[in-house]
């Protein structure tokens, strides 16, 4: 659900339709995750006992994932920079790297989940795990979305008709904004679920 369709250049306003659209989309996304974080706080304050992330979850793997995601945020910026100075191979390699990193993130997460399931732990186990699986699961869906968008851009870059398109750069920027957001969400999730 990204906003990469632009039909005509804006007749007013400094910031392009696509960029504005992405920002507004992110605003709604922020409300979505803000609500989940609020629910997390409310439920935690209301509960008698709350497990400590270190005992309940796999902190090292999550730390690894944090590193992976942050790196991917950097690589996508590089991709944008390359697209900016019209360096197609540069863009493609950095973008592919970004995608690989996000896939890596998913693989690690899959290990984490499967381990928990093996122990018979699931969303039903306790409110803590319910929150954990719901929020990380929702985040994973967002990562998948990001991968699709980035892959789409990677493919488009191979077609000169898109690569030359005046708005291509704007689309890369939009994807970048979205990816940063996904990253930031994780940066909030990591401490509040694993460390605190």
């Amino acid at each position: 659900m990204t906003t990469i369709a632009i039909e005509q250049p804006p007749t007013a306003g400094a910031i392009s339709n696509a960029k504005l659209g992405v920002w507004l989309f992110l605003a709604s996304e922020i409300m979505l995750f803000a609500t989940l974080f609020t629910s997390y706080i409310v439920l935690r304050l209301g509960s008698t006992s709350w497990p400590w992330g270190w005992d309940a979850l796999n902190v090292p793997l999550a730390t690894l994932n944090t590193v992976i995601l942050i790196t991917s945020s950097i690589t996508i910026v590089m991709a944008y920079a390359k697209a900016y100075d019209k360096d197609k191979p540069g863009f493609q390699s950095w973008m592919s790297l970004t995608i690989l990193l996000s896939l890596g993130f998913l693989v690690v997460k899959a290990f984490e989940y499967s381990h928990e399931f093996k122990l018979g732990i699931g969303p039903h186990t306790s409110v803590f795990y319910a929150i954990y699986f719901t929020m990380t699961g929702l985040h994973v869906i967002h990562v998948l979305g990001g991968i699709l968008v980035n892959a789409g851009l990677l493919y488009m870059s191979s077609r000169s008709k898109h690569w030359e398109h005046p708005l291509f750069l704007g689309r890369v920027e939009g994807a970048g904004l979205y990816w940063h957001f996904v990253d930031i969400v994780w940066i909030f999730l990591f401490p509040s679920l694993y460390l605190l």
Partner: peptide, 25 residues
């Protein structure tokens, strides 16, 4: 609509979890 609907979306997801995955939000 932009700012008020996402919270309901989140709330609905939690209720779905309660119904489908037997959580206890």
């Amino acid at each position: 609509l932009l700012l008020a609907f996402p919270p309901l979306e989140a709330a609905s997801i939690l209720q779905l979890m309660d119904r489908v995955f037997h959580t206890s939000f």
